[in-house]
Design a protein around this nucleic acid. Sequence first.
RNA 1: GGGCAUUUAGCUCAGUUGGUUCAGAGUAUCUGCCUUACAAGCAGAGGGUCGACGGUUCGAAUCCGCCAAUGCCCACCA
Length: 877
Amino acid sequence: MRSNQISTKYNPLKVEKKWYNYWMRKKFFKSVPDARQPYSVVIPPPNVTGVLHMGHILNNTIQDILVRRSRMLGKNVCLVPGTDHASIATEAKIIAKLSKEGICKNDLTREQFLEYAWNWTRKYKKIILEQLKKIGISCDWDRTCFTMDKQRSKSVIKVFIHLYKKKMIYRSFRMINWDPVAKTAISNEEVIYKEQSGKLYYIKYKIVGENNYATIATTRPETIFGDTAVCINPNDKKNEYLKGKKVVVPFVNREIPVIEDDYVESEFGTGCLKITPAHDINDYILSKKYGLGILNIFNDDATLNKYGLQYEGKDRFFVRTEIEKDLNALGLIKEVKVYKNKIGFSERTNVPIEPRLSVQWFLAMKKLAKPALEAVMTDKIQFHPSRFKNIYRHWMENIKDWNISRQLWWGHRIPAYFLPEGDFVVAETQKKALVLARKKTGNSGLQLSDLQQDESSLDTWFSSWLWPIVVFNGINKPNNKEINYYYPTSDLVTAPDIIFFWVARMIISGYELRQKPCFHNVYFTGIVRDKLGNKMSKSLGNSPEPLDLINHYGADSVRLGLMLSSSIGNDIFFNEICCEQGRNFNNKMWNVFRLLKGWQVADTEQPESSTISILWFRTQLSLTIRRMNYSFSKYRISEALMNIYKLFKDDFSSWYLEIIKPKYGQSMDRKTYEVTLDFFDSLLRLFHPFIPFITEELWQFLKIRKENESIMFSTIPKVNFSENWLITEKMEEAKEIISNIRAVRLKKNISNKEKIVLQIIGSYKLDYASVIINMANLSDIEMVEKRPNGAVFFLVKTTEYAVAIRRNIYTKEDLDKLKNTLQYYRDFLSHIQVKLNNKNFVSKAPVKIIEFEKKKKIDAESRIKSLEKIITSLNNG
RNA sequence: GGGCAUUUAGCUCAGUUGGUUCAGAGUAUCUGCCUUACAAGCAGAGGGUCGACGGUUCGAAUCCGCCAAUGCCCACCA
């Protein structure tokens, strides 16, 4: 193959498609338990709400890097893909879609709605899985799961029953967060608090039997219909006049008592608080404490019910503005202040949540949390970066019972069956429920039709929290070979915003259901943001379509670009330029391949410069492998990538290849050629986890490969213990000389093509002359007694040398520069001298450091001497 | 109100055990090159009181304290 017949531009699309198909066809991602060490990862199942965004690309790239590397380290890798039904989020999407078609959820039966939901799910599941494949992710696709497929659903119900039997799941009448748009309860974690600018209304309640008023301060005047008391602090002097009195609620004219409790802060507002037990958690607590009545004034869509009198059927916010007017008309508003407070919004529908009393299902968390907390605090499960431990601990130590029921249709229906008398039984199926019910009631005449299944569904996280177990069918068959082999899984890669929703609960379920951690490491990615720092999301429309990026740059380029700009735990500010950088790099790799393939090989002698650079590069390679191993052990993936990236671009391409490259028309010696191919092979293998496609392509064509061979199953190169530091040091010196000579060429307008002579004053032995001659395009290096005519001098370490050419290129500017350099070294020397004269330094610093300072001193002295000599010489010339 | 994190070149960020890769990378900028692998490239250059102040230390970008700005998490002040 002649190199010039291959395109100079790498075309990723064809290549990526070809190799992904090849890997799939050969079932290279497949994993079955065997004698090797397992390395299992479950991907965070994307929601079937829509297509993937940049966060998914980042997340899945990281996972794929980790698993591909582990595969190449000889482990039995199993990466399990799947999707999440995302109960509330998907249901909201479907309702939105239906409403566009003029269909209202209430017009449909549960079954009809679910049919829509399944169609939706099928559609997006397919798109999502295809997108994942485009990224190059090496999942065992035969294992693809869905949180609501048969096996998973069965597992979820089993777990529910298990926890119910242990009395950890219970049904209770409580104040919960109510989403009035989705018309469902949601958990505390689904409430997002945002600061809002609102008003604080000072409303006068007439004191019974007096011509005086109590003034209460509230942000929610529309709730006065639900007031059952007014509360003051018992030590509040200014409100003492209210003690033991009764006041009248405006409009309703209900008489309510004034009670006293420490909870009220005298300094806030008027120090007088209205108690609305049905719509505020604190008021509810007080009402229970003092035996006050509870009045629910809202319908489930947050319009007022009949207790709202003339406002019945009106929305809460509309009523708020109306009631302000109406109270004003009655002269009952003392004042209205602008007030900022935090209001809870529903994560999904983004409407203010309404605290509401309701019967829901809860999971008791305190006991469950204990082993899960301990596991993370003792690093049995390691968080990367570790600072997330604190966040986790705080949540776990203050954990509240989890409201797991939702008034939604799309999800796992709660397996509770109500009997005609209101009692209920919990069972896996309706048939089993009937058996239980007959037994419980003693009524053998009960029929299936007498049982009414709970209408609610389970929180979507109640299925995803079982993910690492259920993907291996560990609930239905707790002792199957797969779960015993793959569980605990190795790493979890996820975004920190679902640490409570998902990560913490998975750890909890892992200990409860399998008495083991569900994974060993958790890697928290950053959040992908746009240039302005906004989180990239579909709704904001600031996220590029990942497929467009992949089609434009290639998956390897997108992967590379993302990883180069994302350090662990930090948010990444995505800029498409990074994909360009990735593409450019891949193109470089492609061209290295073209170069290698274009060489003519002959049995000639190896040039000295090649011998040297091979030894040098071998050390650099080994050093890089060590650094990468270290970085990976700390999960610093970008750092690992940066190491190999620089090695490839700088050391390998710019130096090594340029040194060994034969001149035009000449052949390369076989020995160097073989070694170079091996180097390239190693580089490809080190790169493979990051950029799987191009590395496979080049690796396959670098040498003749066997049938069924793939770089996927080659090994990560090992550290070479014959690292040679002396060569590295000398090579660095040679590189510096070469760079200096190049700089002189540029400055003095000497063409790179023109061969020049390097002259060295004195008897200094220059190492690696052959490399310098080659790379700086010298015709010769000469040793001279004194300054050659018109040459410019530079210093490298203790060497003094000159670039001498036929023209006079010396100027006053050059001399000034040398003088400045001299001054720099004189200052430097005196600085070291002060340090060495410091008794404290000499007595306290380690010997090694003192020796180093002395060495620096000698070096500086030598440079000063040389510079003085050269400057004198120049002045005389 | 409590907690966590961030602040280093115009921009985006590395910098592990205090000294020996210590002030670094990518990108942008400027200069010169269409050099037989690559212009999606090569070579070279400029650019930073390491947020402020104080402390510990022989020695601080690094450790401690305090302050400032920014971001995130948690929390029932109506």
